[in-house]
Design a protein around this nucleic acid. Structure first.
Length: 407
RNA sequence: GCCGGGGUUGCUAAGCUCGGUAAAGCGGUGGGCUGCAGACCCGCUAUUCGUCGGUUCAAAUCCGACCCCCGGCUCCA
């Protein structure tokens, strides 16, 4: 199985650290608001990566964090811890409901940032002990990027040293030159949203959350770390700095990043105009399976341009597969043919090749569609018997264990 | 400015790593099957791959220059 690794910038043969077992960490949602289908593109791809691993016989431990403590949350909650909890709970519930509808296999753990503060505090203390972090007058704690030589190894971002990167502005202070925040000291606007810890009263920075929780739930190093492409810098870069700074180990062996879903040539985002939610598309008559298929219709490292004609096209494709399934279940009379069995075997082996080639789902999907077409032809010519049909169903079921768009 | 991804038929796009003369799906169109319709089946649908040069017997594929579009670099899937 080949996987493109952002860190080494090439496709690498995938070899898990422990034989037969894969540990993966995916950056989950920040629950200050509701996610749109652009966000879900990433989650669906992550789900498929997991399914391909399962397809290959690996046992998979999947951790997806829930970010319920960070600036946007605090702002949304207007300094009320109770409100923060309500907002987080509501959005987390919505997120999981959408995930279920889009046929995502649930993660094994969904650690919440708010419930792992101690782990973060411990990690920050370790960084301070190692001289990689410092505290300012206000009590904020920053990671000292100049003390971590390999900073920039993931994003290849050129870090300009010596500039005034240590200034605490209103929010995170990492400018181009910037050190980034590990711990934010309590401010009046935070209201009762704070934790009293050995580091003082305050709350953790965004990046430390993933370092602490990935180490806690998966150990270090683990196998695969995934997220949206916009996390390469600064989130994952910082996560590496924190985790490696504290433990001496790069947290993950393979880093995978999903490109954005576009709309009108721009990335789909709430602020930049148009974005659609899963429910919105559902109301317009597109089934969850179709939405899922659509989000998988382009290779994950290429951008996918969202259009309604495209979505309709996908709907027809899925429909065709499902129509065939229905007919396969009723095949009788005709005699089994070797041609049909050959087509099925061929399709399954092509399919396997493609999913193992850096999760090439479009190509794998093509294989399935070609098989469907071929079976239609054979059926038409009376060369599709009950034995063929049952083998075909079995093969398609196996393919769909990866795709999750038919059954 | 720095890092990265693209420009192929009406649309979505494969191919480019290992040059040999343009996949596939959708749409459109002609026909078949069918009581009608749908579904399904058969055929047709790019002399051309952003532009200009170069290398070659041969280039979408290699080399050079240029144009255009987009993403990341601030929170972001």
């Amino acid at each position: 199985m080949l996987i493109y690794d952002t860190l080494s910038r090439r496709k690498r043969e995938f070899v898990p650290l422990r034989q037969g077992e894969v540990r993966m960490y995916t950056c989950g949602p920040s629950v200050y608001s509701t996610p749109h289908i652009g966000n879900f593109r990433t989650y669906v791809v992550e789900d498929v990566v997991k399914r391909v691993l399962l397809f290959n016989g690996y046992r998979v431990t999947h951790v997806m964090n829930i970010t319920d403590v960070e600036d946007k949350m605090v702002r949304e909650a207007r300094g009320s811890r109770r409100r923060l909890r309500e907002i987080a709970a509501k959005n987390e519930r919505y997120f999981k409901e959408c995930s279920r509808r889009l046929n995502l296999i649930p993660a094994d753990h969904y650690p919440r940032a708010s419930e792992n503060i101690e782990a973060m505090v411990a990690l920050i203390k370790r960084l301070m002990d190692r001289g990689l972090a410092y505290r300012d007058e206000a009590g904020n704690i920053f990671f000292d990027v100049s003390r971590f030589r390999r900073y920039g190894m993931l994003s290849h971002y050129r870090f300009r040293r010596g500039l005034e990167g240590r200034i605490y502005r209103d929010d995170y202070s990492q400018g181009e030159a910037g050190d980034f925040i590990l711990w934010k000291a309590w401010r009046r606007s935070d209201g009762d949203i704070y934790w009293d810890t050995e580091l003082g009263r305050g709350r953790p920075g965004w990046h430390i959350e993933c370092s602490a929780m990935s180490i806690r739930y998966l150990g270090i190093p683990f196998d695969i770390h995934m997220g949206g492409i916009d996390n390469i810098f600064s989130h994952h870069e910082n996560e590496i700095a924190q985790s490696a700074g504290a433990t001496g180990k790069i947290p993950a062996r393979y880093w995978m990043h999903v490109r954005h879903l576009m709309v009108n040539r721009r990335k789909m985002s709430k602020s930049l105009g148009r974005s659609y939610t899963v429910e919105e598309l559902r109301r317009r008559g597109f089934s969850y399976r179709v939405i899922r298929a659509y989000l998988l219709s382009q290779h994950y490292r290429r951008r996918l341009n969202f259009t309604f004609p495209g979505l309709r096209r996908k709907a027809r494709e899925v429909q065709r597969c499902q129509d065939l399934i229905r007919r396969l279940r009723r095949v009788k009379g005709a005699v089994d043919s070797e041609a049909a069995d050959r087509a099925i075997d061929r399709a399954l082996s092509d399919f396997t090749f493609h999913v193992n080639n850096d999760i090439d789902i479009p190509a794998a999907l093509d294989t399935l569609c070609s098989l469907v077409r071929r079976l239609d032809q054979l059926e038409r010519r009376g060369k599709l018997g009950p034995g063929n049909a049952s083998r075909a169903l079995q093969a398609i079921r196996r393919m769909d264990s990866v795709l999750g768009i038919i059954f």
